[in-house]
Amino acid sequence: MLVQHMAALNNGKRIVLASGSPRRREILTMLGLAHEVHASAFEENLDKGAFPTPAEYAKTNASSKAAAVVAELAAGGGAGRCPDLVIGSDTIVVVDGRILEKPRSEAAAYEMLATLSGREHSVLSAVALFTPSRSEVRDKPATVFCEHTRVRFAPLSPETIAAYIRTGEPMDKAGSYGIQGVGGSFITGITGCYYNVMGFPLHAFTSAVARLLDAGEL
């Protein structure tokens, strides 16, 4: 577990979150992990059809986001010493083998929510951890993994979907809903990590960081 390492991490390590996601910032802050935010400039335009599984797609996105920040900071794009840990993450919703990310329009949000209505789907959150201060190959992650949670939705009427879209909540979230907001009222149950559905698999992350510390890689 990570809790016994928190004092050392917060006093001696520079930790960078390569994401502008307020949910990920909230989760790391809740954990008590001191970190700075440096949103990645990586454009998420990879060809989904080029990947054998949705998990591989999410892991490549997470790694690419973090690698872009590592390169930017190495080139002088940020103040301070070389980061000890750079965290990249990507969250997708998968139903019928189809990858759902953030909706580009209200019409797209409506279509996604109608697809999820009354069904079970998967939420996949990938995390890539880079250790630039320790690694000679700075563009490769020290570890990358993907957590999988099953989510069950109640049936949603057209009126419910339309009202939810009017709240604005769906527009910056994978699959067009947020479990930590109004969208949580649609969920009848989950199997797996709750924080994974928020966008960051807390237990898997802390376990991975603890392993890096125990192995002397961080």
Rank of each mutant, 00 (worst) to 15 (best):
M1W: 06
V3T: 14
Q4W: 07
Q4P: 07
M6P: 08
M6R: 12
M6Y: 05
A7W: 03
L9C: 13
N10P: 03
R14D: 08
L17Y: 00
L17H: 03
A18W: 00
A18K: 04
G20Q: 12
S21C: 04
R25D: 15
T29M: 09
M30K: 14
M30E: 15
L31A: 07
L33K: 02
A34F: 07
V37Y: 05
H38Q: 15
H38I: 14
A39C: 12
S40P: 02
F42C: 09
F42W: 01
F42R: 05
E44T: 02
E44Q: 04
E44M: 03
N45L: 12
L46W: 00
D47H: 03
D47K: 03
K48W: 04
G49H: 05
G49N: 14
Y57V: 02
K59W: 01
V70F: 00
V70N: 07
A71N: 08
A71C: 07
E72P: 06
L73S: 13
A74S: 15
G80R: 13
G80N: 14
R81T: 15
P83C: 14
P83M: 12
P83R: 09
V86H: 03
I87R: 03
I87V: 09
I87H: 03
T91L: 00
V93D: 08
V93W: 00
D96Q: 09
D96V: 07
E101K: 03
E101W: 01
K102L: 06
K102S: 09
P103Y: 05
R104I: 11
A107F: 01
A107R: 06
Y110V: 08
E111G: 10
E111Y: 00
A114Q: 13
T115S: 14
L116I: 06
G118H: 02
E120G: 15
E120T: 15
H121M: 05
S122N: 11
V123S: 02
L129H: 04
T131W: 01
P132H: 03
P132D: 10
R138Q: 14
K140Q: 15
V144M: 11
C146G: 11
C146W: 01
E147P: 07
H148Q: 13
H148E: 14
T149V: 05
R150M: 12
R152C: 14
R152A: 15
P155H: 09
L156Y: 00
L156D: 04
S157G: 11
P158F: 07
E159G: 10
I161A: 10
A163L: 07
I165E: 07
T167M: 10
E169G: 03
D172C: 13
A174L: 02
G175F: 01
Y177R: 06
G178M: 02
Q180M: 08
Q180H: 10
G181P: 07
V182W: 01
S185F: 04
I187W: 03
I187M: 05
I190Q: 09
I190P: 04
I190V: 12
T191C: 13
T191M: 12
Y194T: 08
Y195D: 08
G199N: 08
H203F: 09
H203E: 15
A204Q: 06
A204T: 07
A204I: 04
F205L: 11
T206I: 08
A208W: 02
V209T: 10
A210Y: 01
R211S: 12
R211H: 10
L213R: 09
L213W: 01
D214A: 13
D214C: 11
A215R: 12
L218E: 04
L218W: 05
